[in-house]
Each structure stands twice: as structure tokens, then as C-alpha cells.
């Protein structure tokens, strides 16, 4: 079953099959990404610019800001959830993820 994905309302959220499933304004943990000088970057997602799929994972591109040091970057390929048996399961933003780490 194909999954319909899009970014709406000026990058405010990701729509998965016509439902708002991933919002901006959460703080995500970027453990392995070289986002800024902080050991683990806690990144406030300010806007999404694109959404796509890699395998069964839904990934986003966007703009974020480290809430500790203030550095702001575009990033791409952040895993935000996966599609299992046709339904989308979002990752919790603050979890330690095995999902895709974005690149900056």
C-alpha cells in the first residue's frame, strides 16, 4: 500500500496519508550527527523542507537549531518513523534512536 507523504503549512508538519503525524517544534536528539560543537545536539525542529522514504523509514529534511548552543543548520535524512504493515509509527523525538541520523 503506497504511503502519501507531504510537508504542509510552510513546513509546520509532515502529513502521512492525510493526517498530521510529525510536528515541528519538538526537540530531537542528534547523537551521532556533527550538528554543532555540543557532544549530543538537542535540536529544535523549526521547519520541514522535504519528506521522503528510505526502505520502510520516513525521513525528513529541514532546518533546526541546537537548543544549547544556538547553532542553526539545514539537515537532511532525519528518520522520524517507519511504516509497518501499512501504518505509520512515529519515533519519539527524545528516544535513543537506531533510526537514520541526519546529515548536515
Amino acid at each position: 500500500m503506497p504511503t502519501e507523504l507531504r510537508v504542509l503549512d510552510d513546513g509546520a508538519w509532515v502529513s502521512v496519508d492525510n493526517e498530521r503525524r510529525v510536528p515541528t517544534s519538538d526537540v530531537w536528539r542528534f547523537a551521532a550527527t556533527d550538528f554543532c560543537a555540543c557532544a549530543t545536539a538537542f535540536v529544535l525542529l523549526e521547519a520541514f523542507t522535504d519528506v521522503g522514504v528510505q526502505g520502510c523509514e520516513v525521513t525528513v529534511d529541514g532546518v533546526g537549531r541546537c537548543v544549547d548552543c544556538g547553532e542553526k543548520h539545514a539537515f537532511s535524512g532525519l528518520g522520524v518513523g517507519r511504516v509497518l504493515e501499512g501504518s505509520f509509527r512515529p519515533y519519539p523525538p527524545d528516544g535513543v534512536r537506531a533510526g537514520s541520523e541526519p546529515t548536515v
Partner: peptide
């Protein structure tokens, strides 16, 4: 229901 899933 609760359909959020940890990544691991």
C-alpha cells in the same frame, strides 16, 4: 490507540 514505536 498508542501507535508510537521506539526506533529500536
Amino acid at each position: 490507540g498508542d501507535d508510537s514505536a521506539p526506533a529500536d
